[in-house]
Every structure is written in structure tokens, then in C-alpha cells.
Amino acid sequence: AQASVVANQLIPINTRLTLVMMRSEVVTPVGIPAEDIPALVSMQVNRAVPLGTTLMPDMVKGYA
């Protein structure tokens, strides 16, 4: 199954992502693919992302 990017902590709005904030997990619905984690580093989220939330393309500025 495809692993997705999941928030490893609460990520406040406009925060630049770092590796420690993200983990890969097989979840439904599928979000951003886990292999994109390196590309997500330093991108900003456009909303607060609670712990355990799957990151979707529309949550990350410049990803989609």
C-alpha cells in the first residue's frame, strides 16, 4: 500500500516543514506520497495541521 505523509506534531499555520514534523504512514484517504517528504522540507503549510493529520496537496503552499 502507498504510504502518505502524516503530521508528527501540531504544525502551526505558515510553518516551514522540517523532517521531524513528518512521518510516513499507510492511511485512507491517501495524501501526499511519502517519497515526496524530501521535497516538502522548507515548504509552508497554509493551515494548522493537527498531530496525526494526513497532509493533502492543498495544505502545502507551492506543492500542488
Rank of each mutant, 00 (worst) to 15 (best):
N8P: 01
D58P: 07
I32D: 01
K61T: 15
M56I: 09
V26M: 09
R47Q: 10
L17A: 00
Q44T: 12
V41E: 14
G62D: 15
L55A: 00
E35A: 14
N46Q: 10
A64R: 03
V41F: 05
R23S: 06
V41W: 04
M56P: 01
M56G: 05
V49W: 02
L10W: 12
V27D: 01
V27C: 04
M22S: 01
V60I: 08
M43K: 15
A39N: 15
M21T: 03
S24R: 12
Y63I: 05
G52F: 04
V26Q: 07
V6Y: 02
T53H: 10
V5Y: 01
P33W: 08
L51A: 12
V26D: 09
A7V: 06
M59F: 12
M59Y: 09
V26N: 09
D58A: 13
A7G: 03
I11H: 00
N46I: 14
S24G: 08
S42I: 03
L17D: 01
L10A: 10
Y63N: 04
E25I: 05
R47C: 05
G52L: 04
V26A: 12
K61Y: 13
L40K: 01
L10Y: 14
A7N: 00
I37C: 04
N14D: 13
A64D: 12
P29H: 04
S4C: 03
A3K: 07
P38S: 12
R16L: 15
P33D: 07
A39W: 07
V27A: 06
V49E: 02
S4I: 01
V30K: 11
E25Q: 13
I32G: 02
D36W: 08
A34N: 06
I32Y: 02
T54K: 04
P29R: 05
T18G: 05
A7F: 02
N14S: 09
M56D: 05
I32A: 02
I32N: 00
V20N: 12
V60Q: 01
A7R: 00
M22F: 06
I11F: 02
M59I: 05
Q44R: 13
T28W: 11
I37S: 05
S4P: 02
A1Q: 15
N14Q: 09
A1E: 06
V30E: 11
Q2L: 12
P57W: 06
V45F: 01
N8G: 14
A64E: 15
V20F: 08
I32P: 00
A1M: 11
R23T: 08
E35I: 11
V26F: 07
D58V: 08
M22K: 00
D58I: 14
V30T: 11
T53M: 08
A1N: 12
R16T: 14
N8R: 07
M43I: 04
L55W: 01
I13H: 13
Q2E: 08
T54Q: 03
V30Y: 14
T54L: 04
P38Y: 14
V5L: 03
T28R: 07
V20C: 05
N46G: 06
E35D: 14
M21N: 09
L19D: 09
E25L: 11
S42K: 12
R16D: 06
A1D: 09
Y63T: 04
G62K: 08
L51G: 15
V5C: 03
V45S: 05
R23P: 02
A34Q: 14
P50I: 07
L55T: 00
L55M: 10
R23G: 10
P33M: 07
P50L: 14
R47F: 08
V27H: 04
L17G: 01
G31V: 02
V27S: 07
A64N: 14
V45Y: 00
G31S: 02
L19T: 12
A3C: 05
V30S: 14
M22D: 01
V41K: 06
V6P: 01
A64F: 06
L17T: 00
T54F: 02
M59H: 12
P33K: 13
L40G: 00
A1R: 08
V41N: 05
G31F: 02
A34S: 13
V5A: 08
A48T: 09
I32F: 03
M22R: 00
Q9A: 14
V41A: 05
R23N: 08
P33Q: 06
G52V: 02
P38H: 09
S24D: 08
R47Y: 12
L19A: 12
M56Y: 08
E35Q: 12
Q2N: 07
R23K: 15
G52H: 10
M59Q: 05
D36N: 14
M21G: 03
V49S: 02
I37P: 01
T28N: 13
T28Q: 15
V49L: 10
Y63W: 13
N14R: 10
K61N: 15
Y63K: 03
Y63Q: 04
S4Y: 03
P50T: 12
T54N: 02
V41S: 04
P12N: 11
V6E: 02
T53Y: 10
M59L: 05
P57C: 04
N8I: 09
V41T: 10
P50H: 08
A34P: 08
G31A: 03
P12L: 09
V6A: 03
T18R: 07
P12M: 06
V26L: 12
T18I: 07
M22L: 12
E35M: 13
E25H: 15
M43L: 15
N8E: 07
V6C: 03
A7K: 01
I13F: 13
L51Y: 14
G52Q: 04
P29F: 04
T54V: 07
V26R: 08
K61F: 15
Q9N: 08
V20Y: 08
V5G: 02
M22C: 03
A39I: 14
P38E: 07
P38G: 10
V6M: 05
T15D: 05
A64W: 04
R23E: 04
P29C: 03
L17C: 02
N8F: 04
D58N: 11
V45R: 00
N46T: 15
V20M: 11
E25P: 00
D58H: 09
V41L: 11
T28P: 02
I37M: 14
Q2Y: 14
A1W: 11
N8T: 09
L10K: 13
P33N: 07
N46E: 08
S4Q: 01
Q44L: 09
D58F: 10
N14F: 14
T15P: 00
M22T: 02
M59W: 14
G31I: 03
M22I: 08
T15V: 11
A3Y: 11
Q9D: 12
T15W: 07
L51K: 13
A64S: 13
L10G: 09
M43D: 04
P38R: 11
M21D: 06
M56H: 13
G62M: 06
V5T: 08
N8A: 15
K61H: 15
G52P: 00
R47P: 02
A7E: 01
V49T: 05
V6S: 02
R23V: 06
L40N: 00
Y63R: 03
R47A: 13
P57G: 09
P33E: 04
T28Y: 15
N8M: 08
V30D: 06
A7L: 03
Q9S: 14
I37G: 04
M43V: 05
I37W: 03
M56V: 06
L10S: 14
S42P: 02
P29T: 05
D58M: 09
Q44V: 07
V6T: 05
S4D: 00
I11K: 01
R47D: 05
L55V: 11
V6H: 02
V27G: 03
V45H: 00
P57E: 09
M59C: 03
K61G: 11
L55Y: 01
L51E: 15
P12T: 09
L40V: 06
T18E: 10
S4A: 03
T15A: 14
E25S: 08
T53N: 13
Q2A: 12
L10I: 14
L10Q: 13
V60M: 05
P57M: 06
Q9F: 10
P50D: 10
S42H: 09
P50R: 12
V20W: 11
T15R: 06
P38Q: 11
V30R: 14
V60P: 00
V6K: 04
V27M: 11
M21E: 02
M21C: 03
V6D: 01
V49D: 02
G62F: 10
I11S: 00
A64Q: 14
A34K: 07
Q44S: 15
Q9G: 06
K61P: 14
S42C: 05
V27F: 02
G31M: 02
A48I: 09
L55Q: 01
E25K: 15
A48C: 04
P57Y: 08
S4G: 04
M21W: 03
S4F: 02
S4M: 02
N8S: 09
D36M: 08
I37R: 09
V6W: 02
P57L: 06
A39C: 04
P50Y: 09
T18F: 03
T15M: 12
I11T: 02
L10N: 13
S4W: 02
V49H: 02
V5R: 00
V5W: 02
D36I: 08
P38C: 04
P12Q: 13
G62Q: 06
P57A: 14
I37E: 03
Q2T: 14
